[in-house]
Design a protein around this nucleic acid. Structure first.
Lengths: 240, 240
DNA sequence: CGAATAGTGTCTATGAGACAGTATGCT
DNA sequence: AGCATACTGTCTCATAGACACTATTCG
């Protein structure tokens, strides 16, 4: 069974395969990810990403596995799900070669972990996940997803999926700023979004103790791709 | 073993897992992918993408598996390799649930299939792959990689990896045009590339029966990301 | 010299950021 | 009225495309 793998036909035992999801949401004006406390070794008692095995009888595809798991955890259908990467090596799991297909999902605030879940679930702020020790290489995975989200937010309408159906332009700008960690210029932000043409006025308004704001909704389910990236205000690019 | 997969702990048999590579190169001024003729069922005798099993003893990671396979087929180290997607479902292989981690690779012309390979290998033009019946969902996979390559070429320096170490700006423009299927404007192309600052003059020149051209090389191994996408000449965007 | 390709000068178009101004609702 | 936030007018700036021009080598 040694050297004739030129033919790609030698059979090796398949490495262990799972589907991991990084669910982003905004909770208390903070970008958070959904984490789960592990019930058994390895990393027992540590926080980890939700993970699902493929159920060949139940799941038609990897994407379905991811969706099924999100539904199980939060009882919502995610409005945005994207496959980010697949990590596979012999170091990430002490039990041996393992492979994770990683998805990230964006959902609006107010999705609460399902109570009947056996494991403790919680929304952990992105800063917390990036600074504290997590299970396996999950910190690394979250970092990758976060970078992808940030990067894509520079030239797409992705952050909209972190908001409810109806939202004001100011709320949307705040969401972009939260995700990107930069301040944006109001006029150029609004011009960019409105000129793109994928926002629809709902006719309703958001009221507070000042001038009410128009409420918008998406007219397309697909994210919009802009031709240029956001540059951010020209001095002091970082919020923090 | 039915319903308590809330705990993500029910063990299912792992689906079959492979690493597939779409190797792009320019052969005879045509964008091509490396294809292999299948020696056994299913799809015996049909063209397919090169595919490798993970060898847990040999491979430290999925990326290593991909590199190992390219080396085996062409005896080159690819200058660019990127994971595109992982496809897994119960329809793509008649034998059942199967998962492919897909990479694409860019290499310069003049990499020839290794002769001792048992299977017949060939460079197939992208048009041929997209029009003729291939094995499994490989046409679909190639299409995805091709779109990713085209899309990324609009805002990165990727097409450079399809050229040898040293190249002229005209050769580079031709490569972009070939990949993107659009004509580009000479001045803006050169300005864009030179202003980015990642090209280095080699001091040598390409000679022919006309004015010789400066030869350039990359000064960084990482692809460069532009802030704006290529728009292409404003009328008649398509070549074909 | 002429053919052919390399390479440039400079105009317009687009869309981003800057910044100050106006609009409208609540208390 | 006056505060707070919504929304706009219009300037500058960066970078893309248009297009015509000049430069250099070979035969």
């Amino acid at each position: 069974m040694e050297h004739n793998n030129k033919h790609n036909e030698v059979k090796f035992q398949n490495p262990h395969l799972t589907v991991d999801v990084v669910v982003f949401s905004i909770v208390n004006e903070q970008l958070c990810t959904l984490m789960i406390k592990r019930q058994r070794a390895p990393f027992q008692g540590n926080w980890a990403l939700p993970r699902a095995e493929i159920n060949p009888k139940l799941d038609a595809s990897l994407e379905f596995t991811a969706k099924r798991n999100i539904k199980l955890l939060l009882d919502v259908d995610t409005p945005y799900l994207e496959q980010v990467q697949t990590i596979g090596n012999n170091e990430r799991d002490p039990r041996g070669w393992s492979v994770s297909v990683v998805y990230y999902s964006l959902i609006a605030e107010n999705a609460f972990p399902v109570k009947e879940n056996a494991q403790p679930l919680k929304w952990m702020t992105i800063n917390e996940t990036l600074s504290k020790a997590l299970s396996f290489d999950h910190q690394h995975i979250i970092e990758n997803c976060y970078h992808r989200l940030q990067n894509k937010s520079l030239y797409t309408s992705l952050p909209i999926f972190l908001l409810p159906e109806e939202f004001t332009l100011t709320e949307l700008q705040k969401t972009y700023e939260l995700v990107l960690g930069i301040k944006m210029e109001k006029k150029s932000f609004r011009r960019r979004l409105l000129d793109a043409g994928f926002l629809q006025e709902t006719g309703r308004m958001r009221h507070a103790n000042h001038r009410p704001a128009l409420l918008y909704r998406l007219s397309e389910r697909q994210p919009y791709y802009f031709a240029r990236i956001i540059e951010g205000v020209r001095d002091s690019k970082n919020i923090d």
